[in-house]
Design a protein around this nucleic acid. Structure first.
Lengths: 353, 353
DNA sequence: GTGAAAGCGCTAACAA
DNA sequence: TTGTTAGCGCTTTCAC
């Protein structure tokens, strides 16, 4: 029991089908140049014996590892898990990632990396050396971290970056932040709102600027000014409180778009605290659509961040790159954008007379 | 680039330290019988070169794979992710599992398996053959599935079963269901409640019975009857509605304990629907403590299911078993129980005069 | 189109 | 206590 071995190996299949190991290997890897007849014979043996290749052995002999790393920020992820407030970023990644991976025999492994650590590279190097993944899916803030990008690139690992367009190696997948902000703003404009305040996210997140841009574009298209309607938070509840107060005190908006759910919830609390109500006195639109805002009173209209779709796309790009890489052509930098959705709930309403 | 190789191998370390491969291997695996002097020399080379062993190679040569599978029910898990209602079972597993795994160089891979499928064994066999994990952590309903247990046992894979005490191979980790139910009941008793209704979970979940047992024990200790106070649901919201109506119509309880959050939320809705309120007219206690009940109005008092702690324990047991297994002693069946917590919120109050 | 040989990085068994 | 050898299961050469 101590020394476990593969029960059915390529050798058994080869023997059963009466062919060489190499032919079996070719069939497994769907390589061209095998007679259909052989191909079928081998396939039959594989099914009959229930053969499944060992990832370890495949990786050992210099081919793919069929492993994709999902690199997330440790502190943020652990904190989300510990709070148990419904933050489901990683869950959504798994949902999208597993879907794509399962179709091609890949696995996704969640790996947490410290952002603010001197040994960020040591941690990463350890994971890479141990697992030798074929690709890595990066999420903010890692997706714009040059050190990480360089390291992965040099190691020959396919990169898919979610939520970043910073120049660098790998695919970039954006989640339609600008479009989402635009649609949210247009939704409010349609409801007659003219003074639409915007609480931006911190500048070190690239998507903060994209969201602001979408809002500004929609406002400009409607010929409306945005001068005093923009305040900046840092994605925390506390910053949302301050931003909302600021906005309500000085800009007198009839609607507020917050750049994430925490700040939207905070805005809701501020309005409440002033004896007013949502959506009667103020409309609120949020960003991200994590579970928390479904349970707010009222449930908040939000731009849903398509994390699952983005991760699925990321995985597919990596898998495709691995496949084509084998055939020799080098992967080009590619941009992809997955659509976000505006989910209408009860926090938006036509502006008061 | 196509053919990636380990950049630093055991060979480099051996050369750098001027020892044999085997000595390096011994140091890596912390085997006894290496002179401290050598040990340090090798260790220094390892650090200097940034060497990290390849899991694939380690597994290939017949030792551990350092991989632990977290086997979950596919349908349930995917559904939780898609609904985005805050169900955080897998997240909690990762939280606990990663903690334990990280300390010993293991990784946890989430693998979804269909419960109601003829090819349940095929799916499992595929995952086992591909990954050759050292252990598997099973959650209900898999943790009481004899086919799965047998298959894993025969494959020599260490098993940790969460939420099951059905006889069979592997460690059993329970989450203090009975104790939690008892404490919840005692809490209500302390508040003066005498008629405490209980909505049980479906019988095919072992923990359903444990929860009922805890409630019965506490009631019995207080000399109270439970005859007409027990109804059974199936963990769905709909079944919760029916169960609560049933209870309120016939048993006239002043408090209800629901065996999970969905049914607790449903009970809350029923009370509301009858123009009454919680906790003024009825106290409610829930089980599991998923995010959803934090956002209920009022937030619901609940027995928190310690999934993270249970998974951590499971991973530790498996890792320890792998280590001792190497030394030859066979692992005995072992039971573990991780404590659950009663989280007091606003849905419980002293009984009306 | 197919097969035989070599080797990936590591550990188990043995020898020294 | 340390080193040597063989081989894990697979893919990559390179022959045929």
């Amino acid at each position: 029991m101590s020394r476990r071995r593969q029960s059915v190996t390529i050798r058994h299949v080869a023997a059963d089908a009466g062919v060489s190991l190499q032919t079996v290997s070719r069939v497994i890897n769907k390589e061209a140049g095998v007679r259909p007849e052989m191909q079928q014979r081998v396939q039959a043996s594989i099914e009959k014996l229930g053969y499944v290749p060992s990832l370890a052995a495949q990786r050992m002999s210099g081919s793919r590892s069929y492993l994709i790393l999902a690199l997330n920020d440790r502190e943020r992820t652990i904190s989300d898990w510990q709070k148990r407030e419904g933050g489901d970023w990683v869950g959504q990644m798994m949902l999208g990632g597993c879907t794509a991976c399962a179709e091609h025999g890949y696995r996704m492994i969640v790996e947490l990396i410290d952002t603010n650590s001197a040994n960020i590279e040591r941690e990463l190097a350890g994971a890479i050396a141990a697992l030798q993944p074929d690709g890595a899916i990066l999420t903010p803030p890692h997706s714009q971290n040059q050190d990480i990008l360089d390291y992965l690139h040099k190691a020959g690992i396919k990169i898919a970056r979610i939520g970043s367009q910073t120049p660098g190696p790998g695919f970039c997948i954006t989640m339609d932040d600008e479009g989402g902000a635009r649609r949210a703003t247009e939704h409010l404009l349609t409801l007659g709102h003219r003074r639409i305040g915007f609480i931006a996210g911190p500048e070190d997140y690239e998507l903060s600027a994209w969201r602001v841009a979408g809002w500004k574009a929609a406002m400009a298209a409607a010929g409306l000014p945005t001068d005093d309607l923009l305040v900046t938070g840092d994605f925390t509840y506390a910053s949302g409180l301050e931003a909302a107060r600021n906005l309500l005190d000085h800009a007198r908006p009839s609607a507020i778009i917050a750049s994430n759910d925490q700040m939207a919830i905070a805005s809701l609390a501020v309005v409440r605290g002033r004896g007013q109500s949502v959506p009667q006195d103020l409309s609120i639109v949020s960003f991200d659509d994590t579970p928390i805002i479904r349970y707010a009173t009222p449930p908040i209209t939000a731009v849903a961040q398509p994390i699952a779709a983005a991760t699925e796309k990321a995985a597919r790009l990596i898998i495709a790159a691995c496949a084509s890489n084998a055939k020799g052509d080098s992967s080009e930098l590619e941009m992809a954008n997955v659509a976000s959705d505006l989910v209408l709930r009860e926090s938006t309403r036509a502006v008061k007379n």
